[in-house]
Simulated scan of single mutants.
Amino acid sequence: MSPQLTPIVDTAQDLELAERILAPGGTRVPNALLDPFVADVDAEQLRDLLRDMIVLRRIDAEGFALQRQGQLGLWAPCKGQEAAQIGTARALEPRDYVFPSYRETGVIYARGAGPHDYVRTWRGEEGAAFDPDALGVAPLQIIIGAQTLHAVGYALGILHDGADEVAVTYFGDGATSQGDVNEAMVFAASYGAPVVFVCQNNHWAISEPVAVQSQFPISGRAPGFGIPSLRVDGNDVLACMAAMRWALAHARSGKGPAYIETVTYRMGPHTTADDPTRYRGQDALEEWGRRDPIDRVDTYLRGLGERDDERAAADDAAAATAAAEMRAACLGMVTRPPLAVFDGVYAEPHTGLQRQREDYAAYLAGFADED
């Protein structure tokens, strides 16, 4: 299915072109395409999705604060993208394997990440990542778009093994301008690889607006490669879950790759090294704030009588606990001595490596002289 190829003019029109189930005001709207894929989602399950998003937003805020306090080298915020990440990730099966970019905090949360897993990479500690086998998630990818090729390679392995799995890769709108993403789609379509491409269109590739990169919806590119695509409201957690279920069913049934574009908005900076006030105004933030993914589910559930202040307080408490555990894990990490970086590189001693160790030791000693 191909999206409407209407030129992108502004954020309001852009979002209206996307499929949705929950409108920004918290009302349920009929959707013949998506409704069948979430017909089983009752109020209890929706409350769980809401709690996930609330906890994720608090984890994200804690990561931002830890970086500002010098405990992390960098942090890539995902505020505003909670529905796109939680909705799609909660649709996955445990056997599926994810290839994320650097912003998918919500995806690793949904896959069972522990307190240490959110900060180890950004703190630069030993291991530098979570356990990929435990989560079914490859390490966070900093190189823009490279993970899409890794996902397709993994999916080709699934084909070779005859396994009932799907590879899933996440990337931003800016990554769609990279050759890697387009090459990945060529390979996936050519070989019928069971892979799902998830583009989180948050409207900003660092400081470049999406309308500069693409005059038409990004999901319209996939059919050109022979890949069916679906464009959904990325701030609607039900629409995102439905879209992923559709894509997984397509890929798992042997029909090849599928593509999802979730239309959302990055409410914070690109990373903590960025100052978004230099390239975007306050009006868009206020506009997208009225489409907040958490608020719309809260409003919908309260309208059904399925949520009250007591439940909200319990969710906030769960979020505070997750943040406290994350902070304790970060502050409790013991950084290895600098020279330990050479340990375990080779099974046997290596003269070249020993020279490097000695050179680095001399370099470090130079700082001691300054004291």
Rank of each mutant, 00 (worst) to 15 (best):
L149T: 14
N182K: 03
E16V: 11
A249G: 14
G153N: 10
A247L: 10
E125T: 13
R20D: 04
G254H: 07
A151R: 04
P276C: 04
L353M: 15
M333F: 14
Q200A: 01
C240F: 04
V137N: 09
V334E: 15
Y360C: 08
A61I: 06
F197Q: 02
D309R: 13
I144M: 15
G172Q: 12
A362R: 15
R291M: 12
P139C: 08
V107Y: 05
N202K: 06
A83E: 04
D233F: 10
R280M: 08
L353W: 03
P3Q: 00
F130V: 05
P349T: 04
D161C: 02
E44P: 00
R68F: 02
L248R: 15
W75K: 09
Y97E: 01
E126Q: 12
L364M: 08
A319Q: 07
A324D: 15
L49C: 01
T27W: 06
E348S: 07
D233H: 10
Q213R: 13
D292L: 12
M333K: 01
W288P: 02
R95N: 03
F197W: 04
M244D: 11
F197N: 06
A239D: 05
V263A: 06
D359Q: 15
A129C: 13
A61S: 11
Q4H: 08
A65N: 09
H270N: 09
A211G: 03
A155M: 06
G162A: 03
A251W: 02
G234V: 04
G174R: 13
F64I: 14
P269L: 00
A39Y: 00
V195W: 10
P276Q: 05
R311D: 15
W288S: 02
V137E: 12
A243M: 08
F225T: 00
A320N: 11
D308F: 08
G145R: 12
V152W: 10
M333Q: 11
D48L: 11
G256M: 09
L22C: 05
D371I: 11
E287S: 12
L33W: 13
E93W: 11
A175E: 08
I59Y: 10
A362V: 07
V186Y: 11
L17F: 10
T11P: 00
A155L: 06
H160R: 14
A188L: 09
T277F: 09
D40Y: 01
S253H: 08
A243F: 01
A312L: 14
R123N: 02
E62F: 00
D371A: 14
M185G: 01
T351D: 15
V195Y: 08
R51N: 11
I86T: 03
L17M: 13
I260T: 06
E93F: 05
R336V: 08
I54R: 13
A12F: 06
A211V: 14
Q147P: 02
D369F: 07
A134V: 09
A39C: 05
G124I: 09
H116S: 02
C330M: 07
G344L: 10
D52A: 12
P132T: 05
A322K: 11
H116F: 06
P24R: 10
A83K: 02
F37N: 00
A247P: 11
T121A: 12
I86Q: 07
A242P: 11
R302P: 02
G281K: 06
A189Q: 02
Q69K: 14
P94Q: 02
R231S: 06
L364G: 07
A23S: 14
P217I: 00
G26W: 11
R307P: 01
W288R: 13
G162C: 05
A65H: 07
